[in-house]
Amino acid sequence: MGEPRADRPAGTAGYGEAAERLAAQYEAVTFAEVHREALHLFPPGPADVLDVGAGSGRDAAALAALGHRVVAAEPTPELRRIGEHLHAGSGVRWTGDALPGLPALGAAGARFDAVLLTAVWMHLAPDQRPPAMDALTGLLAPGGRLFLTLRHGPVPPGRRMYDVPADETLALARSRGLHPVLHAERPDLHGRPDVHWTVLVLSFNR
């Protein structure tokens, strides 16, 4: 897959300049650690998986190693290049497509059994979230699942983030036919005492 125009979400400015530091932070924890509450809900066999805001490709590569066909969507070119280098040979296909629209993937008619948004939703402004949920729902195959984490805590200097309530996200999802199969809370894996996370898994029953 090539590099379509990235409909970059607000809040990701500065990620290019900090790409190496951020990639090291992402790779310091494993896919299994980040998704421990939801591991049992991932597809058991080879499936089509989309990792939105894939960062360094940690999760995408781990899922590809399990035999899944994985597309990693990362709008920051610097992070995308690092991910392609770190996980060369993993079989992951990279694209520069991004929320809120994911226009290239939508235009291609792609459908996925699982879609991940790990530490991504916090970057979307209130008016971007409804079209983003529309785009994500449109990319899910019947019975597909959306894996989403919500960050809660102070915003780092120089970044634009939103502390999005879980109830708001669940209401937005339910209105589009997505139903929760997991709602969990966990502390920050990097040891930040003032940051915690909500873990949601939503099933699409078309």
Rank of each mutant, 00 (worst) to 15 (best):
S175F: 06
P43L: 09
E27G: 01
A18H: 01
L140S: 13
H35P: 14
T76L: 07
D194P: 10
G138R: 14
A173M: 08
R151L: 05
S56P: 14
A132L: 09
A132Y: 08
L39A: 01
D188C: 14
A132Q: 05
R206D: 14
E33T: 10
L146V: 14
Y26N: 10
A184F: 11
V71Q: 06
T169W: 03
L202M: 09
G57I: 09
G11D: 04
V120I: 15
V49E: 00
M133F: 13
R206N: 09
G16W: 01
V34E: 12
A88Q: 10
Q128F: 06
A107K: 05
R159C: 02
R192P: 03
H68A: 03
R93T: 14
A24F: 09
P46A: 11
G143M: 04
P126D: 03
P131Y: 04
A184L: 15
P100Q: 05
R192C: 10
P100Y: 05
A110Y: 01
A61H: 00
P180E: 00
G109C: 04
P4W: 06
L170S: 08
A98N: 06
R81L: 07
L136D: 03
A88H: 06
F147G: 04
D167F: 06
W121V: 12
V120Y: 12
H179T: 15
P131W: 00
D113A: 15
V49I: 03
R176A: 04
E84Q: 15
D134C: 08
R160E: 10
L202C: 14
V115T: 03
V164H: 12
R129K: 07
P126I: 08
T95W: 12
R192H: 10
P180V: 08
V195Y: 00
A72S: 08
L182N: 03
L146Q: 09
R176H: 03
W197I: 01
L22N: 13
A24N: 12
P187Q: 04
R80G: 03
P193F: 13
L124Y: 04
E74G: 11
P75V: 02
R111D: 13
P44D: 08
Q128G: 07
H85T: 15
H183C: 07
P75L: 01
R151K: 13
T137W: 02
V181H: 02
G158V: 01
D113R: 15
H183E: 04
Q25W: 11
H190C: 04
S203I: 11
A107D: 01
F204N: 12
D167P: 00
L63P: 07
V120C: 15
V92I: 09
P142A: 11
S175T: 03
L22Q: 13
N205G: 14
P154Y: 00
T137L: 02
L99H: 04
D167V: 13
V29A: 12
N205W: 12
A13D: 07
F147L: 05
T30Y: 02
Y15H: 14
L150Y: 00
R21W: 05
L41V: 13
A125Y: 08
W94A: 12
R69L: 13
A135C: 06
N205F: 06
H123C: 09
G109D: 11
S56D: 02
F42N: 07
P77N: 07
H183W: 02
Y15E: 12
R160W: 07
L170W: 00
G83R: 05
A10F: 11
